[in-house]
Design a protein around this nucleic acid. Sequence first.
DNA 1: TTACGAAGCGGACCCCGGGTCCGTATCGTT
DNA 2: AACGATACGGACCCGGGGTCCGCTTCGTAA
Lengths: 195, 195
Amino acid sequence: MTERTPRKDAVRNRAALLAAADTLFADDGSGEAVTMADVATAAGVGKASLFRAFGDRTGLIRALYEARLEPVRDAVESGPPPLGPGTPAPERVFALLDTLLCFKLDNRHLVLALEDTGSDSPYRAEHYGHWHALLESTLRQIPGLPDPAFTAHALLAATRADLVEHLAGHEGVPRETLRAHLATFTARVLNGPVV
Amino acid sequence: MTERTPRKDAVRNRAALLAAADTLFADDGSGEAVTMADVATAAGVGKASLFRAFGDRTGLIRALYEARLEPVRDAVESGPPPLGPGTPAPERVFALLDTLLCFKLDNRHLVLALEDTGSDSPYRAEHYGHWHALLESTLRQIPGLPDPAFTAHALLAATRADLVEHLAGHEGVPRETLRAHLATFTARVLNGPVV
DNA sequence: TTACGAAGCGGACCCCGGGTCCGTATCGTT
DNA sequence: AACGATACGGACCCGGGGTCCGCTTCGTAA
């Protein structure tokens, strides 16, 4: 067993750090101005503990992100229709994209913070690969739809966090309008030209 | 007149800096590791001259970018069909997106470098606004196409530099395949569902 | 309860890169 | 030739990510 039981104080500190980071990122709006030292201080903990717990800045943000994403992931992998498996392909595509859009609307600060860690392209992150693979395989079940891999990328691109932030945050497009637009757009892609 | 004639050496240095930066960014691949000091040194110039000439890192990259973009811009604003004005709307949409895709393929390093200055969302940059406005107004001329503003954003999102880089660079998708996929995708969006 | 190794702590410290300051050199004009 | 204005350059500053190491706390074993 390579498993080590972590000490109590370590667990407590980790929780405190996550909570503090969550608050700070949410307050700041996009987390660009939140510094690692800030997080440590807000949690009442030394910087080294922060880095020991999460490795680096990206690790911290990723941890927050995964925590928020987990329920969504569960709903997709084993939940009821229209999100879960066993849903007819087209409906599931709509549901997936809508869910993703809502998630990004609700967690703008986190997703933005994650993207501009700048460490690596968002396309290299494993969660992108996960979403893409799922969407692609779902698209593949729709007859007559060409280039499912590219189509999946293009549809996902329409829900990019900074685009969502720009539309919802900067241009003030209401949530429901955005969802409707995305659904309409998706419908055109799925139904495609008649020929 | 607020116009000042710049001194000869200033002009020469500016040119040397641009050339050096261009080379360095191209060599590095995505320009993340290129430091301002590197650029200055490669140009045989002091750091201060670099910052005096371009303001800051973003200014330098933007200058390179604009230089490359200028011919494209001209072709769009006053060139012959299918890019220039006077082209039927649908063909022009294809031409615009294809041109943009090719531009990003040819200038990946620059566009990536520009995006990850991280200073501000790419959607705030005026060149994005320019492309979006043009695409939107062209889409608006196509009857039956809903939400032209959102559609323009979504189509442009499919040509995002990091996506292009991921597909062309990391996954090795050939240039022509990518262009074909984008064209097919665009066609489905434009032609839309029959109902 | 004590004792003692190991796991964890924290803040001083390092490093690196963007951006600035100011004494000096060059330009170009009269 | 001479003298302001303009530009030069490298030493310098600063802020933030990440690390080091002497000290503390935990948990276990006697």
